[in-house]
Design a protein around this nucleic acid. Structure first.
Length: 442
RNA sequence: CGGGGCAUAGCGCAGUCUGGUAGCGCACCUGCUUUGGGAGCAGGGGGUCGCAGGUUCGAAUCCUGCUGCCCCGACCA
């Protein structure tokens, strides 16, 4: 992609409305445009990141055995009257009316709808377990949206819903999502820690918030440092096997947000393992039993011939929020530092002297070889000074920069720079290419 | 939803107290010079001063109402 043909509206100055670093950087890097309070248009660079995150979330959901579908953003109020939540949900729900004066709403979540779909088709325990998910925009009319997409009103969310014949099965479904989440966040370059969350009236131990540590986090968290060292389940994990040993290993060490914090238990830890920090919630998994299947009569017949309401759980990941969360966890004074897996482009290829025949030739040749090797390249062909080019590249945070100037080009040499470390290296063309392809393969 | 603040060019701001017909920096356009960390000089374009009323010879400026946005708190993926 040629930068001269791309749409990348960089801001040199900080927009005054942006308080936290991720919001500021997303606006400055031309990823995002606010259209109303808590409502944003995603510009090309932002969309690229959003799609990469979405793809990783999807792969890990699929791997765990969940099945993708897509439910609408607009729902009928009648569904919500059935579960009793139409009145309970309050002003956070955006209520609208169609031309026939029917009550509709912009969905804040999809438990009712998925339950309605499930009950229309599934009758027998033989069709279970089942986990359906979708990745769809939601709307919650927050009183006070803030922090950019971290707390917007419209947001992209992955929500999965599990159906099982009994609590035992539901626990296994819960464990599958738990493991899928560990893998997902790891692939996104994040250290996510599952923390016991409030289960409300259902009770039990089956609700966890996945929290990443960041100085700008919204809530205080307390945990055992050993959690940072636990191994992530491998890609070939068998999701049909018993996953409870993995879940136990991750849930036994102490970890809690301030609402669930138990100072006594925390103090019992050895001093050097106690960690108190701030965190951002990026995922939440929840078992809620028959809360919806009961009133909505979503029932299956068990092996004993008895009909019973299915046991359900729901599992959310804030996809659009993750874009901001990743930036909160990975940036410096100059700008964003994208993890390789979600970077909008793999390589920023900087032509320091467009119009110089030799430099142009080296840059164009390198661009096609890199693209031929499957890398995504943003080629800076603008007629700007070197300093401005470097500042732009650092701001948008592509993992690798390749800098080509006329002197180096004449010697068949380019400089590659790793954004995360700032480390630079002058290499011949073949060596540079090999280094970048290898970097991507990781 | 309580408390506070802001609204003037694409972005960041001054001008408002004390009314006289709008300005600075960045960005943008033209030209020349410059060229490895957000260049310099010269010239140029762009604003019904958030909206609606009112006061006045005259309103960005004073008065009234409205709208939008931001921050703190309570609430939440």
């Amino acid at each position: 992609m040629l930068l001269s043909r791309y749409f990348l509206p960089i801001l040199k100055e900080n927009p005054k409305e942006a308080e936290i670093v991720s919001h500021r950087l997303m606006l400055r890097a031309g990823m995002l445009r606010q259209e109303a309070a808590g409502i944003y248009a995603w510009l090309p660079l932002g969309v690229r990141v959003l799609k990469k995150i979405e793809a990783i979330v999807r792969e890990e959901q699929d791997r765990s055995g969940a099945i993708e579908c897509l439910m609408p953003t607009i729902q009928s109020a009648d569904l919500w009257r059935e579960s009793g939540r139409y009145d309970d949900y309050g002003k956070e729900m955006l209520r609208i009316r169609d031309r026939h004066e029917r009550d509709m709403l912009y969905g804040p979540t999809n438990e009712e709808m998925i339950t309605e779909i499930f009950r229309s088709y599934v009758r027998s325990y033989r069709d279970l377990p089942l986990n359906l998910y979708h990745i769809q925009w939601k709307f919650r009319d927050e009183v006070r949206p803030r922090f950019g997409v971290m707390r917007g009103r419209e947001f992209l969310m992955k929500d999965a819903y599990s159906f099982d014949v009994d609590a035992e099965g539901a626990r296994a479904a819960y464990n599958r999502m738990f493991v899928a989440y560990l893998r997902t966040f790891d692939r996104l370059g994040l250290k996510a820690i599952p923390m016991r969350a409030d289960t409300g009236p259902i009770g039990g131990d089956l609700s966890h918030e996945f929290i990443i540590l960041a100085e700008t986090g919204e809530s205080a968290v307390f945990c055992d440092r050993s959690l940072l060292e636990l191994p992530i389940p491998a890609a070939d994990t068998d999701f049909r096997s018993d996953l409870s040993p993995i879940v136990s290993a991750w849930t036994e060490p102490y970890a809690a947000t301030d609402e669930m914090h138990d100072e006594a238990a925390f103090s019992a830890l050895p001093e050097e393992r106690r960690m108190s920090a701030r965190g951002i919630e990026i995922g939440h998994i929840f078992y809620f039993g028959t809360k919806y299947s009961d009133p909505m009569r979503a029932r299956v017949t068990g092996p004993d011939g008895q009909e019973r309401p299915v046991h359900m759980g729901s599992y959310g990941i804030g996809v659009s929020r993750l874009v901001a969360a990743i930036i909160e966890a990975s940036h410096d004074d100059a700008g964003i530092i994208w993890p390789d897996s979600v970077a909008p482009f793999d390589v920023g290829l900087v032509n320091l002297k467009p119009g110089d025949a030799v430099t142009d030739e080296v840059v164009d040749g390198l661009a096609s070889r890199l693209e031929g090797a499957g890398l995504e390249v943003l080629q800076d062909d603008l007629d700007q000074r070197a300093g401005a080019k470097f500042a732009t590249m650092d701001l948008i945070g592509l993992p690798w920069q390749v800098i080509v100037g006329p002197k180096g080009a004449a010697k068949g040499e380019v400089e590659i720079k790793r954004r995360a470390t700032g480390e630079r290296q002058a290499l011949g063309l073949d060596a540079a290419l090999a280094r970048l392809v290898q970097g991507r393969a990781r």
